[in-house]
Structure formats: C-alpha cells, structure tokens
C-alpha cells in the first residue's frame, strides 16, 4: 500500500501528510513533485494544503495546470483514491474533479482555528471508520474556504449522499453560528459521484496527535488505509 503526497510550489502541509502516513498509518509514502507524471506505483494520492502558486488568480487555479494534475485525473478516473485537503480541495474543484468552488470567507479574514464538523456520510472510502452523525474536532486554516455551488449541484450532492462533512456546534447541531466561512449548507467536505475523490477544508492530518489538540483526524487515515487493505 503506497501513498503519494503531491508537492506544488507553495504547498506547506505536504510534510504533515507525509508524517501521518509514515508514522500513524505506517505505510510507505513518497513526495511527488508537481512536474512528475507517473503515478503507477501509488494506491492513493493526497493533494495537501498550502498556497500553491501563491494563490495567484484564484486559490488552486494555477496548480490545476501542473503536469501532475493530468495524471491525477487519470488516476482518479481509474477509481483510485484521491484526497484533497484545504488547498488540495480548492485544486480538485478548479480541476473539475469535484463540483462547486471555494471563494473568500464571508468575514474576509484568514481563519486559523479548531472547528467541529459532523460526519454526514460514512459511506466513503475516507470515512467508513467514522460514526455517521459523530462530531470531529479539526483545525482549519484558510481565507478561501467558503464553498459555493448552484442549486442543482446542491440537490445532487444531497441526493447522492456526497456531502461528507458539515460545520456544526459542539453538540453536532448545524447552525449558522458554527459556520466559520459562510459555506453553503455548512459544507466542509464532499466527494465525487464515484466516491473515490474527496475534498475537505479542515486538516485531519494536523489532528492525529493529542499533543496537537485533537487526534480526531486519525480515523480519516485509518478509513483510507482500511479501504486499501481490503482492496489488496
């Protein structure tokens, strides 16, 4: 079971993801420079957080044109697992692998905080180890995390059970006050129709050690590893 963490100029959560895979999942993992195109040896790809290309034009807009992204699209089209975290989520939306877009937070500020998210769907390769309706405490760190999509897309996401995580309060209630960035329907994470590509704004890879305030993110990676182990 081999993981790859894509590195763009400006990625800055690549080492966090690498650390979690090697230390907590205990599996081999490589950094993949964005100019590389051969992903044949990998079973799952993580597009990490950061500020690829300095967020120039729009967050994630320029990373989409990196050579590695064509390979990531092919990799995903074959049914392989792709997880985009924060800037990775923005990149997957810009690349058309996930619907919608992430725009400036409604309060304009860059938010660096811990938030609560409710597990809306555990019917994904990334969340099957989680309890549906359970609340995770995860850090966020973004200025452009405000998820927007049109009505038809929102209907489709709901109908197909593709809304994976929503911002909530400590008790799991979905409220506007618990929505840090103005995301439509409090959406914090979604998956694609085939359920093998997921994007989320919170950082599970920064929440895998109690020392860092939360270890709730571990179950995301446990789910991911469990899916791959079952498929092997």
């Amino acid at each position: 079971m081999k993981f790859g963490v894509v590195v763009f100029p400006g990625s800055n959560c690549d080492h966090d993801a690498y650390h979690v895979i090697s230390k907590h999942v205990g599996q081999p993992v490589d950094f993949i420079w964005h100019r590389e195109t051969d992903l044949r040896s990998y079973d799952a790809i993580i597009i990490p957080g950061g500020f690829s290309y300095g967020d120039y034009l729009r967050a994630g807009a320029l990373a989409r044109f990196s050579p590695v992204m064509n390979s990531v699209k092919e990799f995903a089209a074959k049914g392989n697992l792709v997880l985009g975290i924060c800037n990775g989520f923005q990149i997957l939306c810009e690349a058309g692998l996930l619907p919608g877009a992430l725009i400036r937070n409604r309060g304009l500020h860059f938010i660096c905080d811990h938030v609560n998210v409710r597990v809306e769907s555990n019917n994904t390769p990334f969340t099957h180890e989680l309890k549906a309706g359970g609340v995770l405490r995860l850090p966020i760190a973004h200025a452009d995390g405000n998820f927007v999509c049109d009505d038809a897309t929102l209907d489709e996401l709901r109908r197909e059970d593709r809304i994976v995580l929503r911002y909530c309060d400590r008790d799991g209630q979905i409220t506007d006050a618990a929505n840090p960035n103005g995301s439509r329907d409090n959406i914090a994470g979604i998956c694609n129709h085939e359920r093998n590509v997921m994007g989320l704004m919170p950082h599970p890879e920064r929440a895998c050690e109690d020392l860092l305030g939360s270890s709730d993110g571990r179950d995301v990676f446990r789910s991911l590893a469990g899916t791959l182990a079952a498929a092997a």
């Binding site: 034009l57 729009r58 807009a61 044109f65 939306c93 810009e94 619907p99 919608g100 877009a101 725009i103 927007v148 999509c149 049109d150």
Partner: peptide, 8 residues
C-alpha cells in the same frame, strides 16, 4: 479556461 472560473 483560465482567467475565470465559470462556476462563480
């Protein structure tokens, strides 16, 4: 294709 994101 580049300068705008047609979704938004």
């Amino acid at each position: 294709d580049v300068l705008s994101n047609p979704i938004i």
